[in-house]
Computed example of a mutant assay.
Amino acid sequence: MAFMSFVGRVLFVSVFILSAWQEFNDFGGDGGPAARALHPKFNVFSKHMVLHAGVKLPPVEMKHLIAASIALKGVGSLLFIVGSSFGAYLLILHQVLATPILYDFYNYDPDHKEFAQLFVKFTQSLSSIGALLLFIGMKNSMPRRQLKKKAPKAKTV
């Protein structure tokens, strides 16, 4: 059972590891194509945050966001593979921050083709958050192995 759990964790994080690897290889001096694609989506998201939530996001370099994304996905994936809940929390943090920015279906009319594509990816990202929360819940609900303590020997007088 432990081996199957390990294989499941490896298969689950393969998406995160492969995307982090690709972003790392394409990073360059400006953050690479990921930073160029993220910049307009981040600007639209920050305008939505000001308009709907009244929260102004600070100015951020896109290459720093991409570097943080690579770090969260890479470190979180490696820790998750070995069964750490902290790795799952890092992956959840990445998904919670990246999902509304990357999959901005709310900017399109439901009749547009982009709406359906982005909405499907958004819901897939939500399902991965759910799987990570399930892992954390299962990990916390399992009883820990306790070492058997030897009973102290009675002292003779």
Rank of each mutant, 00 (worst) to 15 (best):
I101W: 04
S85D: 03
V75G: 03
F80E: 02
Q95W: 04
F122E: 03
L18M: 11
Y89M: 04
G29D: 10
I101D: 00
P110H: 11
H64F: 10
A37Y: 13
I101A: 00
L134T: 15
G76M: 01
S77P: 02
G130H: 12
F122K: 09
H94C: 01
E114M: 14
G130V: 10
T99D: 05
M49L: 15
L38Y: 07
H39V: 03
Q117S: 14
F45D: 00
E23L: 01
F80M: 01
Y106I: 05
V44D: 15
S19G: 06
L79M: 05
D104C: 10
V13H: 04
K56Q: 15
Q95G: 05
H112D: 13
F135N: 12
F105H: 12
S69M: 05
S14F: 04
D111W: 06
V44H: 10
L18D: 08
K121N: 15
H39Q: 10
G31P: 09
L65K: 06
L97T: 06
S77N: 01
V60W: 12
K121W: 06
G28L: 07
A53E: 15
F45Q: 02
T99R: 06
Y108N: 15
L79K: 03
F135L: 03
A68H: 00
V44E: 13
G130L: 15
P110I: 09
A35C: 11
L79H: 00
V15G: 11
L90S: 01
K41D: 00
A20H: 03
N43R: 13
